[in-house]
């Protein structure tokens, strides 16, 4: 029975004992652990480790004396469990083949349009390599991923359970896409609050419907920012979407310098505006005010004068 189930089991890449699949451990008490955690008693101490690792599992049967013995074929010739044994990366090849097979079987099922499949984070190449203990190349893993993506596009209501199970085994343990931020809402005064950061400055902006008035830290925009460029940065989310005369901004900024504060405001205002009009997100992204600019001052390193500057060369 176990022999029959073996190929199917192999298709699941991340069973607990998978890395040991090529090495069945012999224990001193004479029992053998198979790759899938099932134990049978060893019958022959002459069975080499090599033989057990590459051959079909040795299913002993009861002999006349009441003991157990190996089938005759097994004693005669070692047969690899999978033909992929002779490829460089048997597990990977098995996985790819089985996925191709799975896809072939389910190819005709209706799919959802591209981009509308459930967002799924697949295991990374490194994680996969760790799982199979084989030097899998990026290009090879891409083949697997493309099949998985195709399978993922099968209409969820018609997704066969076998496909679902296989997909499940290739998913990352923790999906970043499950991490959905809490939706923000306008408060009872109709204000949307956004928070933005840039360099070491952080800003909170309350955006409310109005006629284009801006107060930052209790000062007007012109008092707060001497440079016109900074003033434009601060309200760029509204300017780019042509909504400068429809909202008022009341903001608090601290930390950082002038530019940092202005650009922290950009982000804060954009986020607050999104609470009022979520549909503006693509426009704001095109304006470049959605993404946090993660650049910071690079730290100084020992042996260098600054982050990268080397001391001048001195003769002795």
């Amino acid at each position: 029975m176990d022999a029959l189930r073996l190929p199917v089991r192999l298709k699941r890449p991340f069973c607990a004992a998978l890395p040991k699949s090529r090495a069945v451990h012999l224990h001193r008490n004479g029992s053998t652990t198979l790759p899938f955690g099932e134990t049978v008693r060893s019958v022959s101490t002459s069975t080499s480790e090599l033989q057990t690792s590459i051959g079909t599992p040795l299913v002993p049967y009861r002999n006349e004396e009441g003991g157990y013995t190996l089938p005759r074929e097994a004693r005669v010739r070692i047969v690899p469990a999978s033909p992929s044994y002779f490829t460089g990366r048997p597990n990977f090849t098995d996985h790819l083949l089985s996925l191709q097979d799975l896809l072939r079987r389910n190819e005709l099922l209706p799919t959802v349009p591209p981009g509308q499949a459930p967002r799924t984070a697949w295991r990374t190449l490194t994680e996969y390599k760790e799982g199979v203990s084989e030097p899998v190349k990026s290009a090879g893993y891409t083949k697997i991923l493309s099949i998985l993506n195709r399978l993922n596009h099968i209409n969820p209501s018609l997704m066969p359970s076998e496909v679902r199970e296989v997909i499940e085994t290739y998913k990352r343990k923790v999906s970043p896409f499950d991490n959905v931020p809490n939706p923000h809402a306008l408060d009872s005064w109709g204000r949307g609050l956004g928070v933005g950061r840039r360099k070491t400055a952080s800003a909170r902006a309350w955006v409310v419907e109005g006629e284009g008035e801006v107060i930052v830290n209790g000062k007007s925009l012109s008092e707060m920012f001497g440079r016109i460029h900074d003033r434009e940065s601060a309200v760029f989310a509204l300017k780019a979407t042509e909504r400068l005369d429809r909202y008022n901004i009341w903001a608090l900024v601290k930390g950082g310098g002038t530019t940092g504060q202005a650009e922290a405001l950009t982000l804060a205002v954009a986020k607050a505006l999104l609470i009022h009009e979520p549909g503006l997100k693509p426009a704001l992204r095109r304006a470049g005010v959605i993404t946090r600019d993660a650049r910071k001052v690079e730290r100084k390193k020992p042996g260098k004068l600054k982050a990268r500057k080397m001391p001048a060369w001195v003769k002795r």
Partner: peptide
């Protein structure tokens, strides 16, 4: 649109800032 924009950028119509 230009008037509104400059009015906001000049800190609610501070005339000298508008001039810039």
């Amino acid at each position: 649109k230009m008037v509104n924009e400059l009015w906001t950028l000049s800190g609610r119509g501070v005339i000298g800032e508008l001039e810039r």
